[in-house]
Amino acid sequence: MLRFLIRRLSSAFVILILISAFTFLIFFAAPRDPAVLACGKNCTEAAKDIIRDNLGLNDPIAQQYWEFMRGIVMGRDFSVGRCDAPCLGVSFNTDLMVWDTIVDRLPLTLSLSLGGLVIFLTLGLGAGLMAAAKKGTVTDKTLSSMSLVFSSMQIYFLGPIVLGALVFSSGIMESPRYVPITEDPLGWFTGLLIPWFVMALIFTAQYTRMSRSSMIEQLQEEHVRTARAKGMSRPYVFFRYAWRGSLIPIVTILGMDLGALLGGAIVTEMTFSLAGIGRLAVDAVTNIDLPLTMGVMLIGATFILMCNVVVDAAYAYIDPRVRLG
């Protein structure tokens, strides 16, 4: 297990370095000049040059990249103050430390992603199992049809409809908002209920379909039929053998979904006017903000890579045939 972790974390580290270098190069390859956004009226070349100098963009790209990467380990000094390690630089747009900004936004994204995940995973797996267990019945057809409808929808479509019905027209619920769970647990829960609900509707549908098909496949496996033939009870075989096997493709997809959500649920945050990592990613790109772009990119990539390591480790527990090493 330890060897597995060391090997995977080492390769994740190399991938992160490559992603950071690639992002840095892409930023400078794009024909967009961050100086323009802080240049005010009659933005002459002389005026832009002063801004580029302020932002450190007049230094060679390799030097800028080296200083950025060194800052992650050693910290850096800026005109607005000391940026302690892990320093991801200072935002071009806000003059705030990127690391602090990400840490500030992360709780919302974590709440949104993990809360939604608990709901859609519970409902999705449950509905999938039920549909598989009652294959061919009205229950199966109803659940399958509903999942087909909802999985073909998008959050930016369903979100405004739900907001219109529950918030703006009827006033049954308040507009989504985020308050830290440590400050107001009830406010945290009610504030994120609508985004969770909408996320759950769409993701549940996908996981229902996946869970159902995977379970049906497993129920037809020889070892499952053998277990039944040996006289084991149907529920025991269902959960002990079939369900466990059916989890492998689900865990694979879940790892990717969770990584992507933690890296920033852009559409969800935009739809519900929430300020998390996803919104930060949009701001970074629209404001041509290199340090923020690098920060968000690295955080997102780290989540995805870590989730993949966890998924691979989980395989060993789910499938006895898999050995880590």
Partner: peptide
């Protein structure tokens, strides 16, 4: 983080 659509809907609904 309230786009124009959100601003307009909230204020037109005039709730809370």
């Amino acid at each position: 983080n309230h786009d124009r659509v959100d601003q307009s809907k909230r204020l037109a609904a005039d709730r809370g």
